[in-house]
Design a protein around this nucleic acid. Structure first.
Lengths: 223, 223
DNA sequence: AATATGCAGACTGTCGACAGGCGACATGAA
DNA sequence: TTCATGTCGCCTGTCGACAGTCTGCATATT
């Protein structure tokens, strides 16, 4: 018998939260856009209560912000915010990679290796979509292997705050190879069981990402 | 004319959130206690809506948890949780102290020094309350001086999750002096402008705190 | 023309009500 | 006694309504 048959009905507020989040990620709502409880409620043909709840949850996650007049906007990180977010991510992810370098199992290392080699072949074939996916997977595996649920949650929340800019990651000077090199160095340090080096390499790699992002953002702003 | 005169009324849901948080911190609600929307609403003589909103906010902060039947309980960290939380805190705080060692101003260093010396005299006089306060202040100053609002917010949220155990921090073998020594070493590294060392000392210091806490918790559990 | 006043509409904060789900208890059957 | 079924009450999810606040525009005033 299918286990999933007796599934509890998902409450509206969760569905709405999910949907709004997707819309923010997909750019249907853009940074700075204002959101209205009533309008969303009408759109989903439900009352304001669950919508309100979903919005509040997203405010707590930082994806929406409320000004002093209780008006809701899609979060648009300032440059300072972007730096702060990356600083926090580096802090957490470098800790994760330190742990992984100390205690990763053989199987886990194989998974990292496979992701890397898949990444390499994706670069050869020029499959952008695949590359982005595998790069994200590499980071995710490291977080997973650190075996710290809370760290994972924090990193994911931080990532989601700059998620709107994720497609910029592969744009820029020779990015695919630079990223691959960065990941490769991290992997190298892990199999050497050298936590310090792994942490250091991750910091450098993330710094590259940040620098690239900031350059592109500035470039865009100038035009 | 007093600037504060035209203050916007604080909405109920914020007041309730604040009050509930205080109750959790003060142990009026203990870990594992169940909370009811209706009951709290009756107590404050308001409707369920703002109460519900406050509860959801505290769930997002992690101070309350909801089981699969939508029942609300005060969060009680497992031992694994405590380790995870501390791991995240170390990651963030060591990053902060690294930054502080790099760029702290003279004035900021003086503030740290004063907190330390106040701490020393509080130990001499045996003022426990004062000691706890100054120890917290030392950590807070470091976070503040790192000039990263987001990092500060994350650390505060993590702290609040084990806040219930804060009074255990000074209990145990010669804790006041051990803590003072830890803070002193960190301070020393900062004035030496040695980020690596500062980070290392903070990690050791926090590790002491954690070990002490776990010991006391195990000890309690045995009885 | 520039400023003040007032009105209308749009939103948010809060309320009370209803319904659907779940557990506790009771009653009855084996 | 043990287990199945039905009922009751509690609690959460959702709804529609109302009140207060703020914005923008139009009208009035000097």
């Amino acid at each position: 018998m299918n286990q999933g048959m007796l599934q509890k009905a998902i409450p509206y507020y969760e569905q709405v939260q999910q949907t709004l989040k997707e819309r923010i990620f997909n750019g249907i709502y853009e940074p700075g856009d204002r959101l209205y409880e009533v309008q969303i409620a009408r759109e989903f043909a439900i009352s304001r209560s669950p919508v309100r709840e979903a919005i509040r949850a997203l405010i707590n996650e930082g994806l929406l912000i409320m000004d002093d007049k209780s008006q809701i906007y899609v979060y648009e990180p300032s440059l300072k915010d972007v730096y702060e977010i990356y600083e926090c991510r580096v802090a957490l992810e470098s800790t994760a990679v330190t742990l992984v370098a100390q205690k990763a199992s053989e199987d886990q290392i194989l998974q990292l290796e496979k992701t890397l080699s898949d990444s390499a072949s994706a670069i050869k074939k020029g499959e952008k979509e695949e590359m982005a996916c595998l790069n994200a997977k590499f980071h995710e595996l490291i977080i997973d292997f650190s075996d710290n649920m809370r760290l994972k949650k924090l990193v994911n929340e931080l990532k989601s705050l700059t998620n709107y800019y994720r497609f910029l990651n592969l744009e820029g000077e020779d990015r695919p190879n630079v990223i691959y090199k960065g990941h490769f160095d991290i992997f190298q340090a892990i199999i050497e069981r050298n936590p310090e080096k792994a942490s250091q390499k991750l910091k450098e790699h993330t710094h590259d990402d940040l620098e690239n992002l900031v350059n592109l953002l500035n470039h865009k702003r100038e035009r």
